[in-house]
Structures are given as C-alpha cells and as structure tokens.
C-alpha cells in the first residue's frame, strides 16, 4: 500500500460500530432522563395540577400512538431478520412499513398538538397562562418532551429513508447490514422513551 497518502483501506468493525451506537443511545437516555427527572420533581410538587392536566390529554390518541410505535419497532426488528436471511424485498417491505407508521405517528401528533394550540394551550399561550403554575409546568413539559421525542422520530425517518436507499442499491446487504442494525437500535430507543412518556402524561390517575 502507498504509505505516502491518506489510508485507502477502510477499517471495518461492525461490532465497534454497534458499540458506538449503544454509547450514543446512552447519551440520549441521559438526555431524556433529565427531562424525566424534571417531570418527577414538578409532579411531586404539583400532584393535583398534573392529575388535571393529564385529564386534558386524549387517552385514545396516546394509546393509538403507542400501538403504532410498538408495531413499527417490531417491523424494523423484522427487517433486520429479513436482511440477515438475505431477503432484500421483505427487508424493504418491513422498512417501508416502519417508515409509514412513523409518519402516521407524526400526523396524529400534529392533530393532537394542533387542537391544543387552537385553544391557546401552548407555552406562552393566553389560555394556559390563566391556569395555575402546576398546569403551566405540566403543559410545558408535555410540549418539550413530546416535541423532542417527535424530533427524534423525524431523525429516525431520515435514517430510514437513507438505509432504504442503501438496501436498494445493495450497499446494505446480508453480510454488511450494520447501518440497518444501528438505525433499528435508534428506533427502539425512540420507542423506549415513548413507553415511559405514555403513562406519565396520558395515564395519570
């Protein structure tokens, strides 16, 4: 090899790539973890307001989105199985399903947020400011946490589109699929966060 230039060989280490993804997931967990910590503190200090705030949220939409995310998590995991077995078409099908479900999740979120914003229930909104401090905090956290979560959904979708192309072009295939695997891990993280967001906001009793 020509020593006189930038290295031309690519150091490949799938296990290392996966470890990098896990470490990144840990940073995400801590990032959301701090939001959960804030939630815990403010709920502890305003139990009544959080209870009433939770009543304002639509349990049906929340449950629907939970189901959507769980199914999408299963489909992305199945697309990994498909690619491991060398079934490109099935992998693409599962990945496409995941992408569609992610989009449906976002549409639901949009409808949910839109209805609230229309009534002035948003940070700094008039209707919200008339309510007590606890309610302002509940909705502040609701928008911040589900907003940052939705941002992760969007990033996940971008990754899916990229990986979808890579599979189509055979860049990601049976013996080299760490991109798909890592995207899957990322998507499960998004699912994990939602698994906790759902009961904490929609199912307060």
């Amino acid at each position: 090899m020509e020593k006189n230039s930038e290295p031309t060989h690519v150091h490949r280490d799938d296990e290392g790539d996966k470890m990098g993804m896990w470490l990144f997931i840990f940073t995400e967990l801590l990032l959301f973890g701090m939001l959960f910590l804030m939630y815990a503190v403010y709920r502890y200090r305003n139990p009544e307001a959080f209870y009433l705030g939770g009543k304002e949220l639509d349990v049906f939409i929340g449950t629907l989105n939970t189901v959507i995310l769980l199914i999408s998590s299963a489909t992305v995991a199945m697309s990994i199985s498909a690619i491991q077995k060398g079934r490109k078409k099935q992998a693409l099908l599962f990945l496409g399903t995941t992408l569609t479900l992610a989009l449906v999740f976002l549409v639901n979120k949009y409808l949910e947020w839109g209805a609230k914003i229309e009534y002035g229930f948003y940070p700094g909104g008039e209707a919200l400011l008339e309510l007590g401090h606890g309610t302002i905090l509940f909705f502040g956290l609701y928008y911040v946490m589900s907003g940052i979560h939705a941002l992760h959904i969007i990033i996940g979708m971008a990754l899916f589109i990229y990986v979808f192309q890579q599979i189509r072009k055979e860049k990601v295939h049976q013996t080299d699929y760490v991109w798909l695997e890592n995207t899957g891990l990322y998507w499960h993280l998004v699912d994990l966060i939602w698994i906790f967001l759902f009961p904490l906001f929609y199912l307060i009793h």
């Binding site: 998590s73 299963a74 995991a77 899957g184 891990l185 499960h188 699912d191 994990l192 698994i195 906790f196």
Partner: peptide, 10 residues
Amino acid sequence: KAAIVLVWFM
C-alpha cells in the same frame, strides 16, 4: 415493556 424491547428487539 422497556425491558422486553431491550432484551428482544434490541
């Protein structure tokens, strides 16, 4: 649920 996702899906 989180544990199930971690153990099987992840």
